Simulated assay, not measured.
Amino acid sequence: MEGLKLAAAKLVVYLHPSKAKNVADAIHGEISSLLFKFNETFDGVLLAYDTDFPSNLAKILPGVHPYFGVRLETKLLLFHPKPDMVLEGEVVRLSEQSIHVVILGFSAAAIMAEDIREEFKFKAKPGKEVFRSTIHKKHRIKIGTIIRFVVKSFDEEILHVSGSLLPAHTGCVKWLERHLEEWSQSDR
């Protein structure tokens, strides 16, 4: 899936002297406070990290509060979707006007009616809403389906994606993967 990237970072974490007894826990606490929030420095949402403590050296900072800085190296897993990237997510709600998706279990996405291909028609029975393709009868999108869609925009403040199902390579992932061979043969 696009939108995920690994990054290596050299950081300096500033800690209060009261945290000097257990520096490792204090560092993990500081970095953990950045999880699932967009960070401009990292240019993405921090999803996971793996920290190496190369040394026990710390530098005390002069000033009113005697904080100390610990240098460390860390590997970061970041999420930052950009327009035209392809993402996948699980459908959690359907209506005639929209499809609502959860990406990686924490970010929400909405695909509005004007961004859904015309071949998909909404059908509703009590408790069973579905978008069904009029061209390929087995291509369906319902609650619980994993879909592939294209990013239109990403709101960094609330971690919300606006998506589109207009391109032909979008829709139900299971159906797309089954019919990928047919498309590649017809393109030849």
Rank of each mutant, 00 (worst) to 15 (best):
P83K: 05
V86C: 10
D115V: 04
A24H: 15
H136L: 05
G44I: 12
A58V: 15
R71F: 07
G105H: 11
L176G: 00
F42L: 11
T170Y: 01
F131M: 01
L165R: 02
G69Q: 05
G171E: 00
E30V: 10
K121H: 06
K138D: 11
L4E: 12
D43L: 14
E73G: 11
V23I: 15
V45G: 03
I31M: 10
A113V: 11
E73T: 14
R188W: 00
I146S: 02
H100K: 14
V130G: 00
E114G: 09
L104N: 13
L72K: 10
R140K: 06
P81S: 04
L61V: 10
I146N: 07
K82Q: 13
A124F: 04
L35T: 12
E182K: 01
F106T: 06
P167H: 00
D52N: 14
E119S: 11
G163S: 02
E90K: 11
N39D: 14
P83M: 03
P126L: 06
R178Y: 03
T74W: 05
P17D: 01
L15S: 12
V173P: 00
Y49D: 07
I99H: 11
H136G: 03
A24I: 14
F122G: 00
T41C: 08
V70D: 02
L176M: 00
K5W: 07
V102A: 02
I103W: 04
F38T: 07
K59M: 10
L15P: 15
L35N: 09
H100A: 06
F122T: 00
I147P: 00
G105M: 03
A110D: 11
D50P: 09
V23N: 06
I141R: 10
S186R: 09
A108C: 09
R132H: 01
F36R: 14
M1F: 05
K37W: 02
W183V: 02
H80P: 05
K21W: 14
D84R: 15
S133G: 01
F53C: 03
F42N: 10
G171K: 00
D52Q: 13
M1I: 10
T51V: 15
G44T: 06
A58Q: 14
K21P: 03
A26T: 15
S153T: 08
Y67S: 05
S95C: 12
P54T: 04
A124N: 09
